[in-house]
Every structure is written in C-alpha cells, then in structure tokens.
Design a binder for these strands. Structure first.
Length: 373
DNA sequence: TATGAGTTTCGGACCACAAGATCGC
DNA sequence: ATGCGATCTTGTGGTCCGAAACTCA
C-alpha cells in the first residue's frame, strides 16, 4: 500500500529545465509545498488557495519542498523532503517561512512604530497609503497598536480567548466610534455589511464573528488571494469584526456547508455562549464602566517582543471563511425567489407551493423540519 | 516615458422576509 | 415579576454596477 502510494507520488510533479519543481496547479510558480493528501506539489499561492478553501483541506499534511541542490537534478521533491512540518493552518516552508518572518517583522515593526515615534509614524503612514488612514483605520496616537494590545491590556485577559475578544474589542468599538476618524469605506470592507455598532445584551448575534466578506460573487472573486496579499485590510477586517462580535477562536463552532465552504454556527450554541458573556446593551457606548485601556507610553524591548509575538499569533489565527450565524436564515435566503439576484416578493403561488411541500413532508415523514441546526 | 482606451478585478448596494430583540401595557 | 402583542432590527445570497487596477497599443 505504502509502496504503491510512493510510486504514484513519483509520477506526479514536474520540473523546469533548471531543476526546480513546478506547482502542479498553476504550472507557473516553483513548488514550495508537497501535499500528501493531494499528492501534489504546490506553490505558496496555490497552496494557500487550495488549503484554505475548507477546514478539511486545511488539515492536509503539507511539507516544504527543499530547494534542489545545485547539480542535483530531476530529483523528486518528495524524496528529499525533510521531516514533516505540520503547518498550523498556515503555510510553512523553509524558504517562505523566512520571507514571511521578515515580512511579519516588518509589519510588526511598522505597527509598533505608531506607538513609539510620531515622526516615524507619519512616514509609515505614507508607506501604507494616504496619510490619513495609514492604510488602516486610525491616525496617530498609536491607534493600530492600541488595537493590537487591547486584548492584552484589559482585565479580561485571564479568561478564555473568546472573552478577550468580547470585552476588549467592545471597548475598542466604543472608542473607535467616539474617535470618529475612520474611513467609512474601509470599515465597510472590513466588516462587510455589518453595521458599525456593538452587538450587545442578550442578542445572540453578539458571539459569532463574521468571517470575511460575504460569499458573494463566487464566480469571479478570489478572496483568499486578495486577503493574503492585503494584510492591512485584514486587520481592519479583523478589528471591525472583533469589535462587533466576540471571537471564540479557541473553540470551533463552525460546520461545513455544502457547496460553499462556509462555517455554520448552530444557533443554539450561539445563544449559550452569549449568555455567558453579558455585554453592554446594544446601542450604548460604555466607555467608563469597562476596564480602561492602558497603553504604555514607552515600550521596553521585552514589551516590544511580546507585542510582536502577539501580533504574529493573532495573524496566524485569522480566519477567512465566511461564518453563517443563522443557518435557518441562510436556508430561507436560498429558497427565496429572486429577480436579478435581489430578493423578490413571494407570490401567492410560491407560498402555496411551499405550504404544500412542507405539509407533504410533515405527513409523510411524520416529523417537522427544523431549519436551525 | 506618457497617455488614452479597453479589459479585468473587486467591493458594495440592493432586495424580501423570517426570526430575534425591544418596548409598552 | 410575568406574559403578551406590536413594532423594530438584523441577517441572509445572487446579481448588478461603479470604481479601481491593470494591460496594451
């Protein structure tokens, strides 16, 4: 069995004339990973796209493809791969790891700069786009960094990760609202169509993050590529979402959905969690009752390193799948009549047909269909 | 190199309505 | 304190459109 598998592996894959293994998906970029499950060598981009498509794919065991030593030609990368390095939902390779780390360091550094040196900050702002937005939402006063450390600098840190997001990000939300300097377009990009508000109180909505934009435009949108390339926007995205919702990242409540690789959050679970995380009533801005945000004015090297680490960890835990918070609403939306993509009024005929259908199911099956999971 | 036209990519708006949230009594 | 009805708010997906990015002559 194993022998057969390995022989199969030897047949796939291709190299360029220079002896570099090529991605079998795009056949354009050098292969950087070998996916055992797919038995394919992939470049970083294709690996990211393919293995972030759904939770199952994400669990594929991939190992980095070592560069072929000079003079060592036509060697199957699968034969020279080192000890397997299980990526943690990320895309690790020795080569790209270095690059990613450098980039991380660069990003983290630039983020930290917001807090350290106003002069550098302004320079950094230019680097990320127009000076007003920094490429992010905030201006000056360590805004971004402030966000980075909201999780850590507040008193909820001892609770589970979800609590971190909930209590801290709510504050962020409030502060952000009061700041009033945000770029509305960026906000929209970040939090999709979720209104800029806090989901509080007993609202079951308050718990589950919206993972990325809608699964719209499936026919021509390639969100994974885009998002991996635009980290600045991602942080806005993450920020705005986390501001509105708690983020129980340590516990996955997602369930794969049929054709769309989206997570579906059972409503019952949503309700349970929300109960345990009471928050400020919706519509209120609670700037004073919550633990205050305490930002150090000077960063020690240790602080800085800690922040960078937190930054990286948070970056790793980012998720891009869309999460369905109400499966029942999704089901209704999918069944709803449309005109050019827009929801259309349901005619009497439609209602009757649906009524008959549901009645038939009930009588034949002897049970009711509960749309919610 | 600069410019304009054409093409591609992307984000957001739009719609109806069930379900949840809120309010007053 | 509890229950109930009325009203308000939210979330859901497919398509279209405009803006931005990109390509090419």
């Amino acid at each position: 069995m194993l022998k057969e598998e390995s022989s199969t592996l030897c047949l796939i894959g291709s190299t360029t004339r220079a002896g570099v293994w090529m991605c079998e998906a795009c056949e354009q970029a050098p292969a950087e990973f070998l996916c055992k499950a797919d038995a394919a060598s992939l470049c970083a981009t294709c690996d990211a796209v393919i293995h972030s498509a759904n939770p199952l794919a994400r669990r594929h065991h991939r190992v980095p493809v070592m560069p072929i030593p000079y003079g060592h030609q036509e060697t199957d990368p699968r034969s020279i791969i080192g000890v397997g390095i299980e990526s943690r939902g990320g895309f690790l390779s020795q080569e790209s790891e270095c690059t990613v780390d450098d980039q991380d360091e660069h990003e983290a550094t630039s983020w930290l700069l917001f807090n350290d040196d106003p002069a550098k900050n302004s320079k950094n702002q230019n680097q990320y786009g127009n000076g007003n937005t920094n490429g992010f939402l905030f201006n000056g006063e360590g805004g971004v960094d402030e966000y980075l450390d909201l999780v850590e600098y507040n008193s909820c840190q001892d609770t589970q990760f979800s609590d971190d997001y909930q209590c801290n990000d709510l504050q962020f939300d409030d502060q952000y609202m009061s700041n009033g300097t945000h770029n509305s377009k960026n906000v929209q990009q970040g939090c999709d169509t979720v209104p800029w508000r806090s989901y509080g109180g007993g609202d079951a909505d308050s718990v589950v993050p919206v993972q990325g934009g809608k699964a719209k435009n499936h026919h021509h949108h390639h969100h994974h590529d885009f998002r991996h390339q635009k980290f600045e926007s991602e942080m806005e995205y993450e920020t705005s979402n986390a501001a509105g919702y708690g983020y129980p990242a340590s516990v996955s409540h997602s369930v794969s959905m049929s054709s769309l690789d989206v997570g579906v959050v059972p409503e019952s679970i949503v309700t349970e969690v929300s109960i345990s995380n009471a928050r400020t009533p919706k519509g209120t801005i609670d700037l004073f009752s919550s633990p205050s945000i305490q930002m150090p004015t000077q960063l020690t090297p240790l602080d800085r390193e800690a922040r960078v680490l937190r930054y990286r960890e948070k970056k790793k835990t980012r998720k891009f799948e869309k999460t369905i918070r109400y499966a029942s609403r999704k089901a209704y939306a999918e069944k709803r009549p449309r005109i050019k993509g827009r929801f259309a009024k349901r005619t009497n005929a439609d209602a009757e047909v649906e009524q008959m259908f549901s009645t038939t199911l009930m009588t034949e099956g002897g049970y009711c269909i509960v749309p919610s999971f």
